[in-house]
Write a protein that binds this DNA or RNA. Structure first.
Lengths: 146, 146
DNA sequence: ATGAGATACATAGCATACAATGTAATTGTA
DNA sequence: TACAATTACATTGTATGCTATGTATCTCAT
């Protein structure tokens, strides 16, 4: 079996994603945050309010994964849930004031991590890279639905 | 907090990696395999023999992660461990005959998944994408060591 | 030859992700 | 209005990944 990892987009993407996750975890840890919190942070920062379902859709993760992440964030005082007055099945999720207070530092951590990772690429290469990822995501997401 | 996911390499890479993982899982499941087995498969296919440490280094994952993966693969009859005659701390890991028999199908699954994911990119864009990933991996791996 | 340090692996604890399934509330239709 | 189907969330079980730490063995310098 001749398999060249260097030419497998899947293998390389997985590897890069793990390295990126480790890099962002290092920067978030001093803030008491973790990589799984990021999609929630960016969806809710600035006082916005969403349901669990909306958060999961926004993050592109499954509902049980979001349920577990929100449970941990609630345990750690990062989010607050209030009953949805229009739907007794649902809760409205908001960042806590403490979490909002960390928003700027979170944004810095994200930007620094991206800058570190992309240090070896020109600005044109960076944009081509992001464009390729957007295409791949769109392709696979469509395939998953259909 | 203004954060544009579409322009975050980390966010996009993570998302693409999760979609790719789901895609390959779908193809591997009928074979009784899973995405975590792949680095082991490709390192050992063809009768090769490596230690756990060598496998972890090859896959770019931490030793305890490889230990858990090997435990599952042993449980499922995919690998065989024999004591290393030169070092009583170590085991030599080999694919089982049953696992070797699936090698061609595994390779097909990987190639098909990559082809699906990259369907929206030209061959030139694909190579640029892989090159960018190799650069990012090298950059982050170096930063992790230093 | 021996003791210190390094090495190979195991173990514990946790986070993030999935699929499959259950429960309660809502919605739409007959 | 009542029942069927749908929806929102919870729960269970598993896999993959990490960090931190423990244990047995090996290696190297004295």
């Amino acid at each position: 079996m001749t398999f060249d990892r260097e030419n497998s987009a899947g293998y390389l993407t997985n590897w890069a994603a793990r390295l990126l996750a480790r890099a962002i975890e290092r920067r978030l840890r001093p803030l008491g945050l973790s990589s799984g919190h990021l999609p929630v942070y960016f969806a809710l920062a600035g006082g916005k309010t969403l349901t669990q379902k909306q958060l999961a859709a926004h993050a592109g993760i499954e509902q049980p994964t979001m349920a577990a992440t929100l449970a941990r964030m609630e345990r750690d005082g990062l989010i607050v849930r209030t009953p949805d007055p229009k739907d007794r099945r649902a809760s409205l999720v908001k960042l806590s004031p403490a979490a909002e207070g960390k928003a700027a530092a979170v944004l810095d951590a994200v930007h620094e991590t991206n800058a570190d990772a992309l240090a070896g690429l020109s600005e044109a290469d960076r944009e081509r890279f992001r464009a390729a990822l957007r295409t791949i995501i769109a392709t696979l997401a469509a395939k998953l639905d259909g």
